[in-house]
Nucleic acid binder design. Structure first.
Lengths: 267, 267
DNA sequence: ACATGTGAAGTCTTTCACAGCC
DNA sequence: GGCTGTGAAAGACTTCACATGT
């Protein structure tokens, strides 16, 4: 709707694949550590190990940036730090606002990794008048009435949302209207934003659910390949929780993709 | 090295692609919202919109779980909630320990989304004796000396690391040795774990750097396609930060992948 | 001799488009 | 008519393996 371009190639940047971009910070961190230990050069092998990836991937990633290594030798640590920093845009500093100063917002405000790489907490914003003026991590909280003014005056383009889910979308809308074009969302909601605005989300609950999935599989593997063993033992409530399946279940119609999911459901 | 199997198919589970698994929690959240509003059925189109994905992807994802929809109608909300919950292993409850009760750890302990889906904070653990016994989010902090005992007694298999980076690896090692097989890591370090242990990481700084990358690109696009315009304007400091390039830079040898990166570096 | 840089092959993921069923 | 379920095509990402340069 509205937007002209029919599904442009997603967030694909001047030839650098998104997956590569997502790893650059990892490399940068490993390189920074080497730099602090005054290590002059690294091989792709060593650096890859430090970053937790394999060396072929690392070399391919770097190849998108240019030819910054020396054959037979490796990469100059300082030089690479600079190139990656520049590529990521960390040679300039980015003012960031955090909206929603609850437990999480406060923790984020105090997070050291923020300042370490070109990010500066320009303002903390909360809707609770009782919070206004209270310093959190050394920065006084401002009231959300002033959100637009703050964004514009400081030229903020990155916003962090740490509010309850219920208000995340409206906060998002206001941020975007005020000029923010990148959002890091900690609220467990899907945000919708206009074209040209980037959203990344961090969701604890989702991460745990993914872990639980794999955890369950491990448990299942130990004994037989049997899934869904107990789960609904208290027949009463479990049965109540499970609807009678979409309209007149015909005997064996319900099957798993491999055809052997032990149909755990009220027949 | 050491591990027998030569690169097994990564974390690939009984036919369900990892990318799909990562989206199931999203669908589940959207479905739960519908369920609370007593909506009986949804089409793939509607549900996809609510989850922020496109409908073809959603249908493909669901097809890995089985045939849970009804053609011409859609999906039964309650039934799908149940099926996805079961697939994710959320019909059982998972005791979780959080190690490192600083600002972040405390925020995580108080996070509502935890309890909402089968996850139960079994214990909060911190190395600081001053913290021991202090209740955080209603749960008394225990000392890390007792880590092994706690894990074993409660049968904990999921651990959350919210410690400083410096001690994350040793905490991780102890968790794993005590029987934890899934770790959610908030410390900005690469954790190495034995085969069979899953690690997921959440790193604020990395997310911001990725946003900064795209943000920079947007800024560059506005004016000409010229990247790296200012950035190193204050020539003095910028130049000092850049090493003389790996050994005798021969004039035009340094090039970007497309051959047109305006080499922003001291010649 | 050694380690980068990269075509080519392989694998995973997304999207298309339509057969099949309600 | 409408919507699911899915082969097949397209695309993105990873891995291989070796030519290339020092």
């Amino acid at each position: 709707m509205a937007t002209g371009r029919t599904h442009r190639p997603a967030t694909r940047s001047r030839g650098i694949p998104e997956a590569t971009v997502a790893r650059l910070p990892l490399y940068l961190r490993a390189l920074t550590a080497l730099s602090e230990r005054s290590v002059p050069t690294v091989s792709s092998e060593e650096l890859a190990a430090a970053a937790g990836v394999n060396s072929a991937k690392l070399r391919k990633d770097f190849s998108y940036l240019g030819s910054y290594g020396t054959r037979g030798v490796g990469y100059d640590v300082e030089y690479l730090v600079y190139q990656i920093s520049r590529e990521l845009g960390l040679t300039q500093d980015w003012p960031v606002v955090i909206v929603g100063i609850g437990n999480l917002g406060a923790a984020l405000a105090g997070y050291g990794g923020f300042a370490s790489r070109g990010f500066r907490v320009a303002a903390l914003i909360d809707a609770d008048p009782a919070m206004t003026g209270k310093p959190v991590a050394g920065i006084p909280v401002q009231h959300s009435d002033d959100l637009e003014k703050i964004i514009e005056e400081d030229g903020v383009s990155i916003g962090v949302i740490a509010t309850p889910a219920g208000v995340a979308q409206q906060v998002c809308d206001r941020l975007v209207a005020a000029g923010v074009t990148s959002i890091l969302n900690f609220a467990p909601t899907v945000l919708s934003v206009p074209d040209g605005v980037d959203v990344r989300k961090v969701d604890l609950s989702i991460e745990l659910q993914i872990l639980a999935f794999h955890e369950q599989r491990k448990a299942g593997e130990e004994s037989g390949a049997d899934t869904g063993a107990d789960t609904g033992s208290e027949a009463g409530s479990a049965a109540a929780a499970v609807p009678p399946a979409p309209r007149g279940a015909t005997g064996g119609s319900r099957k798993g993709p491999d055809g052997d999911v032990p149909a755990v459901m009220p027949a």
